[in-house]
Amino acid sequence: MTRNRLTERFAALAAEDRAAFVAYIMAGDPDIGVSSEILAKLPAAGADIIELGMPFSDPMAEGPTIQRAAQRSLAAKTRMADVLAMVAAFRKQDDATPIVLMGYLNPVLFHGFEAFAAKAAAAGVDGLIIVDCPPEEADPLADALDAVGVSLIRLAAPTTDDARLPAVVRRTSGFVYYVSVAGVTGVKEAVSANVAQPVQRLRAASGLPVAVGFGIRTPEKAAEVARLADGVVVGSALVDEIEGALNSGSNENVTERVLSKAAELAKAVRLARVRDA
């Protein structure tokens, strides 16, 4: 069995009594070169776990920010092989930071579940989040991922009721991703008061760490959620920095802006429970 970097990382953070800062970027945004550089430097900026978006032509669960990131990536001719090569290159310098690929089912299905799982595992991918693959449809993919020791991470939502919960957490590993708002990424803001209870319910049902995402943009919000959950996912706010740098028209460094935002968020997550004490 391959080692599970997700389990190791969450265990280490639990020992430090702090939540994971999970940073999302889209692979290939604005191109493979720049996004590889960002990826390489995210751990030093404080990312405990990295979610790497796989671009898709029809990202139905994304707000405008990540839709545009996917369009930039595809316009730069990013292919699935490039995304996996990015991870493989990262693994040569960092064998501890977990990488989770996040995206949509069709590109994975296109390459074949077994073939994709084998390549992802070989590249050093630790988990997969497939937005449009609910538990009812997930068994063929879960079989392929189980065989190579890659986690299939499930999403739970505010609409997930108690009746569905057992199905949602069945065959999941690594962590559970709680979608904190009914909506698309990066638009509505999470309300911390509405997060605490679902996180506890998910922890109890799954026995796994729970990361929260889909509505966390600011260091303040990240800190609030870090007091309640095992991980805090920020995506659109980081991708906004890429877009802002690209649109600024100056020679402003895209990488620097993203990393500085990531460092700010990471610090807020790290200090969240310290201030509490």
Binding site: A61, L105, D132, P134, E136, E137, L155, A157, T159, T160
Partner: peptide, 12 residues
């Protein structure tokens, strides 16, 4: 066929 939607929509 099937039901390939985000978890948020699945209960709906």
């Amino acid at each position: 066929g099937g039901r390939y939607v985000a978890e948020t929509l699945m209960p709906l």
